[in-house]
């Protein structure tokens, strides 16, 4: 097939192809070993596999972003590191997750495992991150209190993932909080008194 085509003899092509294939193999090992997002906050969509498996499964097809009715899923740019490039993340400050679990059902490769969207069972089954409340910043926890309660009203699982006491002082239930980030999105303090921090997903 190739003789009519310009572009080198067959053996030269084979050699070059082999070199490229080997280079891909070596470069992949190199890039795969180092992650440039150490210390940065990476909140994955619900149902995500442990980070390493997630990265090798995620096909970067943007379907989770397409189906998200809240526009919460964005994609990391390549400058954040090639290993994580174009993978989906949730930035709770910009847009939190409404826990509809549709992204988990369309993921073609199982990087996001299907999750039943039943609100009775969702708290406790998934953990994208964990809300961390800074009481020193929170208006409601101030003395004297400036009653706020915005985060409690934003929480999709009020009374479960978050409870409030006098002056609408919030308390996060670390067992049931799924890390959806609606509280962080709604927080009127600046910087946010409540913030989603990543949980260790190396095991789950």
């Amino acid at each position: 097939m190739g003789d009519a085509l310009k572009g080198g003899t067959a053996s030269r092509r084979t050699l070059l192809s082999g070199v490229i294939a080997a280079a891909g193999l070596v470069a992949g090992q190199f890039v795969g070993l180092r992650s440039s997002r150490a210390g940065r906050i990476t909140i994955r969509p619900p149902g995500a596999l442990p980070e390493k498996d997630f990265l090798s499964r995620c096909t970067r097809c943007y379907q989770c972003g397409d189906i998200c009715p809240n526009g919460a899923i964005t994609f990391l740019p390549p400058k954040e590191g090639l290993a994580e490039a174009f993978t989906p993340v949730i930035e709770p400050r910009t847009q939190g997750c409404t826990a509809c679990m549709k992204c988990t059902q369309v993921c073609p490769t199982g990087a996001l495992q299907p999750v039943d969207p039943n609100p009775e069972t969702v708290p406790g089954t998934i953990k994208m991150g964990m809300a961390r409340l800074n009481k020193e910043m929170c208006y409601s926890w101030e003395e004297p209190a400036r009653t706020c309660g915005v985060c409690y009203r934003a929480c999709p699982f009020p009374g479960k993932a978050m409870t409030i006491s006098l002056f609408e002082r919030p308390t996060v239930n670390h067992e049931l909080c799924i890390g959806c980030g609606l509280c962080e999105q709604s927080c009127i303090h600046l910087p946010q008194a409540i913030r989603i921090l990543p949980v260790d997903r190396s095991q789950t």
Binding site: I20, G24, L25, A27, L55, S56, A85
Partner: peptide
């Protein structure tokens, strides 16, 4: 350019197996 598509295919699959599918972009 020499026809190296199959080499690129093997190389990028090997890369993606270790470091994720970002390279395919």
């Amino acid at each position: 350019i020499p026809r190296v598509g199959l080499g690129v295919a093997v190389g990028s699959v090997a890369f993606a197996a270790a470091a994720g599918a970002g390279l395919f972009h």
